[in-house]
Design a protein around this nucleic acid. Structure first.
Lengths: 97, 97
DNA sequence: CCCGAATTTCGACGATTTTCGAAATAAGCG
DNA sequence: CGCTTATTTCGAAAATCGTCGAAATTCGGG
């Protein structure tokens, strides 16, 4: 699978993993996310793009600002697949409400 | 945790992930692993070193050849932690919003 | 239609990574 | 000790990545 590559590339950077972690608490604007790091806006925007291309986040525009949100489906799929792929026992995610 | 970075860096390369996959079937010699790729031995040796530094594989020498084996403990830990860290569905415990 | 705010795109630069060939190490064997 | 096999270490080129400042885009409001 092609996304496989993009996802692991995306996860390779600590800043991007931290962004994902922040997004796990709910959606945030690009500005909010950027303010949490000591990086310029262009750099952060680049990270957002990488995460988005990997399918790990989605974005939505509201007025002048852009909201980013975690998209867990790809991550769940990739991690579960890796887990299984490597033959590491059962991978259970109890998705039952 | 420091290993976190090393593990994700290690997983970022497709060749290294494929090596891990091969090792999921049991230990292999450096030569056997190298023969499965169109890369020079030095390149493969470098990949082995990266995997080893990340704690994903261990090695053992037998005569002139070196056997590599998957070490699942770190991977299990890191993936489970990531899963949990990102607040995805619960990995091993019950749900409570 | 112009202005200000939020965000992204562009172009470039330094740092890291991947790869290779050549040389070095390690181990068994006669 | 020399010889062969298996693997790693050592530079060094080439590709990729992360970062930045400047400029461009998008949007809402006067």
């Amino acid at each position: 699978m092609k996304n496989f590559d993009l996802v692991f590339k995306a996860l390779a950077d600590p800043t991007r993993r931290e962004v994902l972690r922040m997004l796990s608490g709910g959606e945030r604007t690009a500005g909010e996310l950027s303010d949490a790091f000591e990086l310029g806006r262009p750099s952060m925007s680049h990270h957002f793009a990488v995460l988005k291309e990997a399918g790990l986040v989605r974005s939505r525009r509201e007025g002048t600002q852009v909201y980013y949100a975690l998209d867990t489906t790809v991550l769940e799929d990739v991690l579960a697949r890796l887990w299984d792929h490597l033959g590491l026992g059962e991978f259970r995610k109890e998705n039952q409400p």
